[in-house]
Design a protein around this nucleic acid. Structure first.
Lengths: 229, 229
DNA sequence: AAATTTCCGTTGCCATGGCAACAGGAGGTG
DNA sequence: CACCTCCTGTTGCCATGGCAACGGAAATTT
């Protein structure tokens, strides 16, 4: 387990912890990590989770099928983010969404009952872990707001612009590479792939954006603005 | 301040606290409440928040204008929910959304710096407050997931059905009253009001739903299902 | 009760974008 | 190199739903 210490230290769940404390926490929370191959399913929507996960490495997608069987990508999770935190509600309901590895990835799972139903033998570090988890939840919250912000826009161009601007801000540059294929981006923006291609073509013709495959360049320098506007 | 004790006790922020502890927390967190009249603005998107709020009574709407100036309703907050929690991120950015009283309401504000930048004089109860806040955040995230679930559906009818089913579940009955006017519902579902009316009319004709004003009856008894499906 | 305002339904017009089907290019594999 | 698969762009067709404008019902005010 020691070979992961570096990763654990960088994980915001153990922010401010000493090695000693990390080992203690892992033991107490039943923490163990698992590696997934690309495209491997992590869980699906009927599953009832007893652990939450922290992405130690790699990228994964949270997705869901709508009533018509069309797959919609809720969000993309990268290193350091939480997965399955909805299970902390503790009502033992099915999660309601699917998770799969977008790239090869590694996830640290910790048992929920040790966190939410602490008994006298609970970890002494529980308070600090909850607080770190709290910050992870805040970040998740932010991502949800951003996603909502995108998909509530009615027309396609507004969604695309919003998404691209956010990516530009994240990369602090008008040139950036996105983590999605066209089809995945369409699922993320909740639009049709061909319509997306068409609109991107129009935007390129209009001089708003330039791109090739998944490398983009925003030509209006609006990328400086805040993600919330 | 004592006359609010009953409300505070019911507020999940102080779950499990004694009166003594509540008073102590309020003093330490600079907690004070304020009453708003219906339609009164609580804050708007340019504001930088230094407090988060807990809704003690009434209902309020979180909304936002899209690039075209159309108002979109993010969410409806009821008694016991948090408002402005995004400010806990602590980057001192504008909040990015507007909040207004949907009905007359009362909000308890507590200062953020006492929570996130605790010094030696910080509340002894801080840990427990964070934990309660953690649970409030979980609920908030749940609401965001649900909203996302609704608006990622491409067609109008699917959005409406999703929304109505959730309301039916919440009320544990196929007959229920929604908190929105038609226009507000349209903003919440992120669709056009007239299109919403038209589709509702079709659904009534198809025997899926019956309604008058904002009282609805779902005629297919699918309302038993889980909100996450 | 009269007046005013808010709310809701209706309808015609037409743009946006979903759908399906195909084609070319990139990259991977034998 | 040849073959195959995956990814992306393109285009025609047409349904969905956005927009605008109106009228009547309900609610609120005076």
């Amino acid at each position: 387990m020691n070979k992961y210490m570096k990763i654990f230290k960088e994980t915001s769940l153990f922010k401010g912890f000493s090695e000693q404390e990390i080992l203690q926490s892992l033991a107490c929370l039943n923490g163990n990590s698992r590696i997934y191959r690309k495209k491997e399913i992590i869980f699906n929507k009927e599953d009832r989770l007893h652990s939450i996960g922290i992405v130690l490495d790699g990228t994964l997608f949270i997705s869901k099928e709508d009533l018509g069987g069309v797959r919609l990508i809720f969000s993309e999770l990268i290193t350091g983010e939480v997965i399955g935190e909805t299970a902390l509600r503790g009502n033992d309901q099915p999660v309601g969404y699917d998770a799969a590895a977008a790239t090869a990835c590694e996830i640290l799972f910790i048992r929920i009952d040790r966190l939410v139903r602490p008994d006298q033998t609970a970890c002494s570090l529980r308070g600090r872990i909850i607080e770190n988890l709290f910050n992870l939840l805040l970040r998740k919250n932010e991502a949800l707001y951003r996603k909502l912000d995108i998909v509530t826009h009615k027309n396609l161009r507004a969604r695309i612009v919003h998404y691209l601007q956010f990516q530009a801000e994240k990369n602090r540059s008008p040139v950036f590479t996105i983590p999605f294929t066209r089809e995945e981006l369409a699922h993320y923006l909740s639009v049709d792939r061909s319509a997306l291609s068409r609109e991107l073509g129009r935007m390129k013709a209009a001089g708003i954006v330039d791109y090739s495959r998944n490398t983009f360049r925003l030509l209006q320098s609006e990328f400086i603005e805040s993600p919330f506007k």
